Simulated assay, not measured.
Amino acid sequence: MSIRHGLLALLGTGPMYGYQLRAAFEAHTSQTWPLNIGQVYTTLARLHRDGLVRALPANEGGQRPFEITDAGRDELARWFASPVPRATRGRDELAIKVAVALVSPGADVPAILATQRAAIMDELRELTRTRLAIDPADLAQRLVLDALLFQAESEVRWLDHCETTLGLTGQPGPATVRAG
């Protein structure tokens, strides 16, 4: 997730100071990706340095709001118009764990898959509860939660695929798959 572009988008709705940006970001993402306030202010400083936002005078409470500049709007428009490459989404730690477990002596691949399945099923239940509890009119939160639900469901499908590929389905008990 591009914090930089997320903050620009929020500033596109009007001037805000750091704590307002953090609260708005977390509200629109259903608190899924909490932000450290230091991260918000560091990002604002970089956006200011790059001419994408400008600092406004401090308000009565001492907070200094920022507003998006024309250059910031152009940058935001480019981001909205560009696809998110899969390569920038980070390495898939689970895929790496399973891959190296397959060649690691003593690694219990079925247990690794079962542990992950239990965790992702818990996450699916929690996401579903959260999804049911949010305001149906809040499209931003709904879509973020839907994305997380679909990603979790995809992980379950991948775990199913691993078990089928490794011949682990239908076995009466845990079997250890060892490097061959």
Results as ranks from 00 to 15, higher is better:
Ala58Met: 01
Leu52Ser: 00
Ala175Cys: 08
Ala111Phe: 03
Leu8Asn: 04
Leu76Val: 06
Asp92Gln: 10
Leu127Pro: 09
Tyr41Gly: 10
Val53Ser: 06
Ala23Thr: 13
Leu47Asn: 01
Glu126Cys: 01
Asp135Asn: 10
Trp79Pro: 04
Asp146Gly: 09
Ala111Ser: 10
Gly38Val: 10
Leu145Cys: 05
Ile112Gln: 01
Leu159Asn: 02
Met121Ala: 15
Leu11Ser: 05
Gln20Gly: 11
Thr88Ala: 12
Phe25Trp: 12
Thr130Trp: 10
Arg49Ser: 09
Gln171Gly: 03
Glu163Val: 00
Thr69Arg: 02
Thr128Leu: 05
Leu8Trp: 00
His161Ala: 10
Ala119His: 13
Leu149Asn: 03
Asp122Arg: 14
Thr69Glu: 06
Pro85Glu: 14
Arg22Ile: 05
Val103Ile: 15
Leu47Glu: 04
Glu67Pro: 05
Thr176Lys: 13
Arg22Met: 12
Ala23Tyr: 11
Leu102Trp: 00
Pro105Asp: 10
Asp50Trp: 12
Gly12Asp: 00
Leu139His: 11
Val103Glu: 08
Ile37Cys: 01
Val98Gln: 00
Gly14Ala: 08
Thr69Lys: 05
Gln31Val: 10
Pro34Gln: 08
Ala77Lys: 08
Gln116Pro: 05
Asp160Gly: 02
Leu124Gln: 14
Glu93Ser: 15
Lys97Phe: 12
Val53Asp: 06
Ala175Leu: 14
Ala175Val: 15
Thr130Leu: 14
Pro174Cys: 11
Glu60Lys: 11
Asn36Met: 08
Pro65Gln: 07
Tyr17Lys: 01
Pro174Thr: 15
His161Cys: 07
Gly170Cys: 07
Ala114Glu: 15
Arg178Leu: 13
Leu143Gln: 15
Gln116Thr: 15
Ser104Val: 09
Ala87Gln: 13
Gly90Thr: 07
Ile68Trp: 00
Pro136Ser: 01
Ser2Val: 02
Ile112Val: 14
